[in-house]
Amino acid sequence: MKEFGGPAFVLDRSDINTDEIIPAKYLTENSKEALAPHMLEDLKLEGFDPRAEKLRQARAIVTRGNFGCGSSREHAVWVFEKNDIDLVVGESFARIFRQNMFNCGMLAIELPREDIDAIIALGPDLTLAVDLEKNVLMAQGSHKAAFAFTLNPFDRELVRAGGWLAFADAHY
């Protein structure tokens, strides 16, 4: 199975919506690549700079609750994909965003608030790695920590298949 993780960027706010992840004015693009420069352009978060070098280098996002709420736009997932981010770890996700992640063969991991607190407490130089066999998220920052997670069995199937289109084409 595909490897997930790498340098992580923290978005320490709940209810980040898909308009903030990719504003509607870019929905007129007919290629996923064209979205890439506009990731998180309208995010309302104290001190956040969408052009930050650390965000450009990130391979994972750590966030709070109800991430990806609002519009169904899969562009919010593609903009991460085209910036080489294929892992989002949060307290919870909006249904459509979460489904879009797994439908693209990407990973949305839910952890309890205490675990997200602990990951954020590891500091800004944070790296994540995922063991999908053992269901453990390894976090390396000021020190190392490991967090057990559960994946919905069907979502796991989608990651294994490389997404919903591949799964559906094989089965239906």
């Binding site: 169904s72 997932v77 459509i96 879009n100 919903w164 289109l165 559906a168 084409d169």
Partner: peptide, 13 residues
């Protein structure tokens, strides 16, 4: 409401 991949599979299958 669904994303584009769900829509694509809906259209196809």
């Amino acid at each position: 409401g669904v994303g584009t991949t769900d829509l694509e599979v809906g259209i196809l299958k």
